[in-house]
């Protein structure tokens, strides 16, 4: 994904020559559709980069924009405007899908900040190999232990089932584990919400932002493990 800097330039209307905000979709003076320039989803909606976002307001804006940008409105316009309306409509849909979901939005904003979640683990491996030290695991070791133990139980459960028997004690253990993991997901959601608010309100404090970003990454990694486990536990508990 290309990281796009926050825009600061002015946009001059191609049709009437008047000045507009850089992320304006339409000229404020003549109302003409403005050219499509690749931009991040926040700028596309004219929003500041924030983790917390008013979904209702965003939805309203999405519907308004989709009506105004719809290619059907431009069938009689010039080829360029037709092209822009197509491009903008497509970005609008992507932007809406990404920004409306809090977790997708979080991953997206982190990626704009230069943090690629899928590559965290690989980067840590590379650093460890380069410096000849033990890799710093991207998830805490207590979670790894938990994941490992649970996988042992899941394996037992599968073997018991394959042998035609169901182990009621094991089933109870797994149900308890499932409950525990759902609880952990819930807690991590609350933690994330706190971190979002903290990051949003520390625009003038880069150090705080860095720390909160790192904590968000930890939480997201933890959640991705837990979600995988829950999928496996649900599968094993199905009978």
């Amino acid at each position: 994904m290309t990281v796009v800097a926050e825009p600061s330039k002015k946009l001059v209307c191609w049709s009437c020559g008047s000045d507009n905000d850089a992320d304006a979709q339409f000229c404020a003076t003549c109302g003409k559709l403005q050219p499509y320039t690749p931009t991040d989803y926040f700028s596309f909606f004219g929003l500041p980069r924030r983790f917390v976002l008013d979904r209702v307001a965003l939805e309203k804006q999405f519907y308004q924009l989709s009506r105004k940008l719809h290619p059907d409105l431009y069938v009689r316009a010039g080829a360029q405007e037709q092209q822009w309306s197509l491009e903008k409509s497509s970005v609008l849909n992507d932007a809406w899908r990404t920004l409306r979901e809090p977790l997708a939005r979080t991953e997206y904003l982190l990626s704009l900040l230069g943090i690629r979640l899928e590559e965290q683990s690989r980067d840590a491996s590379d650093r460890a190999a380069a410096s000849g030290t033990v890799k710093q695991q991207v998830v805490p070791s207590d979670l790894l232990e938990e994941v490992f133990e649970l996988n042992m139980q899941l394996e037992e459960m599968r073997m018991a089932k394959a042998g035609g028997a169901d182990d009621p004690e094991l089933r109870r253990d797994l149900e308890a584990a499932r409950e525990n993991f759902y609880q952990q997901l819930k807690v991590s959601e609350q933690d994330l919400q706190r971190l979002w608010a903290e990051w949003d309100s520390s625009a003038d404090n880069e150090a705080t932002r860095q720390t909160t970003q790192e904590k968000m990454v930890d939480l997201l990694n933890r959640r991705s493990y837990i979600r995988n486990l829950l999928r496996d536990v649900e599968e094993a508990l199905k009978s």
């Binding site: 683990s121 695991q137 991207v138 790894l144 994941v147 490992f148 991705s224 493990y225 486990l229």
Partner: peptide
Amino acid sequence: GLVGAPECGDVMR
């Protein structure tokens, strides 16, 4: 050594 990759959920001891 207990290691894992959150992307795929693998754990290795």
